[in-house]
Simulated assay, not measured.
Amino acid sequence: MDHVEYVYTVGMDAADIDDYLRSGSHGVLALADGDDAYAVPLSYHYDGERFLLRVSTHDDTGSEKRRYLDTTDTATFVCFAADSSWSIHVRGSVAPWDGTVDEATLNEWFPPFRLFDESVEDVEFTLYELDMGSVVGRRTAD
């Protein structure tokens, strides 16, 4: 291992974590059903108080996401940037958000949704709130 390159990282303090979360918009949500794991890329919105996830559902995949959301006690959301070497893990329970929001605010909070083979009419969104029970961040050392 003499020629493997390394980059030193350090833990982020609460202010750094807050800044990175506020500036980001995407990550991966990891869920579980017993011994079966499921991870899905999602957009998020963080305003300093709540961590919201925009979850889409449509005919084929909606039931799978919801099934895992229903069976997961503690979810992990990972946001990161490989090019600038930082990552944040947010762990906690996840449940449908009980707030309301109009379409203009949704468009402000989240980037445009990327459609694959589904039509716009077939896609529905539900906002989920991830309880930020544990938040850990690391970044490249200065």
Rank of each mutant, 00 (worst) to 15 (best):
L127I: 11
T71V: 10
I17T: 06
F80T: 02
E103W: 13
D16Q: 14
V7L: 12
S25T: 03
T61A: 07
L52W: 00
L21S: 07
E64T: 10
S134Y: 04
T61Y: 07
Y46E: 01
T76K: 12
V94A: 13
R139Q: 06
R138I: 02
T71F: 09
F51Y: 01
E49N: 08
T9F: 11
H26V: 02
A141T: 05
G99V: 15
L130K: 00
S134C: 05
T61S: 06
H45A: 06
D73Q: 12
D2C: 02
D35S: 12
S56G: 05
R114Y: 11
E124P: 01
G133R: 03
E64R: 10
L130H: 00
E124V: 09
W86K: 05
F116I: 13
S43T: 02
D122K: 06
Y44T: 00
R66S: 08
T126E: 04
H26W: 12
P111D: 15
G99W: 07
E129P: 00
E108A: 15
P111F: 14
S56R: 01
S56I: 02
E64C: 04
F51S: 00
L52D: 00
V78S: 14
D73E: 13
V94F: 07
F116M: 14
R138C: 00
L106N: 08
D18A: 14
Y20I: 06
M1V: 08
A32H: 11
D98M: 12
G99M: 14
L106I: 14
D33Y: 04
V10W: 10
G92H: 07
D60A: 10
D13K: 05
G34D: 07
D2W: 12
V28H: 09
L42H: 01
L31A: 07
L69M: 09
H3M: 08
E103L: 14
T74W: 07
E49I: 04
D33M: 04
K65E: 03
